[in-house]
Amino acid sequence: MGAALRATHADVGRRWTLDEPAAVSHMSRSTFAAAFKAKVGTAHLTYLSDWRMSLARDALRTDTRSISELAAATGYESESAFSTAFRRVVGASPRHFRDEARQQARVE
């Protein structure tokens, strides 16, 4: 599992399939999927999505990259796909989240 997590974290923008982390872990897809869920508590692609959104939230708070640059850096093919995923996970659009975070920083 450690090798799969390190590979995932090292290349978050990659278009991961279940085959790749399974191969890194020297397991079949089904064995890897079951082992990952048992150890991490969620499926690999769900973990990857959550990790990407965590990185995106941090970047939107502190980074000057555009939303489309951030979308590409976190593995999304378009700003629209990124925005849809971000809104589903976070509950707000990336622009709204960034504006709120910047406003909070000014108040503090």
Rank of each mutant, 00 (worst) to 15 (best):
M1P: 01
L5D: 04
R6T: 14
T8W: 09
T8C: 15
T8G: 15
H9C: 06
H9G: 04
A10R: 07
A10M: 01
V12A: 02
V12C: 08
G13W: 04
R14L: 06
R14H: 14
R14V: 01
R14F: 11
W16C: 11
L18F: 05
D19V: 03
E20Y: 10
E20T: 12
A22V: 07
A23P: 03
A23L: 07
M27V: 07
R29S: 06
S30T: 15
S30N: 15
T31P: 06
F32S: 03
A33S: 15
F36R: 02
K37A: 11
K37V: 08
A38W: 05
A38K: 13
A38G: 10
K39D: 11
K39F: 06
V40L: 03
V40M: 04
G41Y: 10
G41I: 09
L45E: 05
L45R: 13
T46F: 07
Y47F: 11
L48E: 08
S49K: 06
S49I: 00
M53A: 01
M53Y: 04
S54N: 10
S54V: 07
D58Q: 11
D58E: 10
L60R: 06
L60A: 08
L60D: 09
R61H: 14
D63H: 03
D63S: 12
R65N: 02
S66L: 10
S66N: 02
S66H: 05
I67N: 03
S68A: 15
S68R: 15
A71K: 00
A72L: 03
A73F: 07
A73H: 12
T74C: 02
G75E: 07
Y76L: 07
Y76S: 04
S78I: 01
S78H: 01
S80R: 14
A81H: 11
F82R: 02
S83Y: 06
T84L: 10
T84P: 00
A85Q: 00
R87S: 14
R87P: 02
R88M: 08
R88W: 03
A92Y: 05
S93V: 01
R95T: 09
F97T: 06
F97S: 08
R98P: 08
R98L: 05
R102M: 05
R102D: 07
Q103W: 08
Q103E: 12
Q103N: 08
Q103R: 13
Q104C: 06
A105F: 10
V107F: 05
V107Y: 05
E108K: 09
